[in-house]
Amino acid sequence: MRKYLFIYKSEVMSSLQYLANILFGFLGYFIMLFIFFQLWKYLYSDPDSVMNGYTMAEMVWYVIMTEILWSTLGGKNLCQKISNDVKSGNIAYNLCKPYSYIHYALFSHLGSITIKAVLYTLLGLVLGFCFLGEFPNISFLSILLWIISSIGSLAISSLFVIFIGLFSFKIEDANPFYWVYSKFILILGTIFPIEFFPKILRPILRYSPIFATTYGPANLFVHFSFQNAFRVLIAQFIYLGIAYVLCYFVYQKGVKKLNVNGG
């Protein structure tokens, strides 16, 4: 485990060199939050009205929290990196190294997004305050559980993206699969809470990865309860296992067929 923590630490230090890139990324993040704020302001003609259990302020905070997770993840880059490692044969260099490629990819990616996560969270809170004029009434414990569940969410999402990136063992370009997966998470988990979908879909969404990766952590911030927190953490524990097993099997199967020309 120490070697993976070292990889994580190295990536955190390395990402500090690219602060300008992160700061420019704020622009896109700000624009998305601004558009959603305008959209919900338009739909909630009366800000105190309740729509599917959410006031306008709760809805805006929900979107801010999910956008923090979504923008921080940087799934597109991770998928491309894994896909390129497979396509270029770089993955072969990892075979002789004393670490697991999946652990390496996970910890290095989490390291590269840590600074971004902190900065985006701070900016999200500031923007939320600017848009709404107040912070939600939440306790220290709920913030702590929200942070823990957000870390869990990023780890699960990263593993799912690694899993998709490893499809490159089978098909040359795994990116199209990532587009569909990311839109599935974006539409069904980031823009709206589960309560906005038809009743028939809600149980399916509650058992899907959306609950563990976006809806669960964001809902903890907006509607905190210990029962909710317990459910989210259990779901994350299960999905972390599922995502890891999926990565492990695709990697094991793919690496056996690996054929690298040259050196």
Partner: peptide, 29 residues
């Protein structure tokens, strides 16, 4: 690479189509 070529086109159509769900939900409000 024909498979990659057609997969790219097809999945981009699916990718865009997924946003229709967002508007169906908004127009239900």
């Amino acid at each position: 690479n024909r498979v990659t070529f057609f997969t790219n086109i097809l999945f981009m159509i699916l990718n865009n189509a997924s946003f229709i769900i967002q508007w169906i939900v908004l127009y239900s409000i």
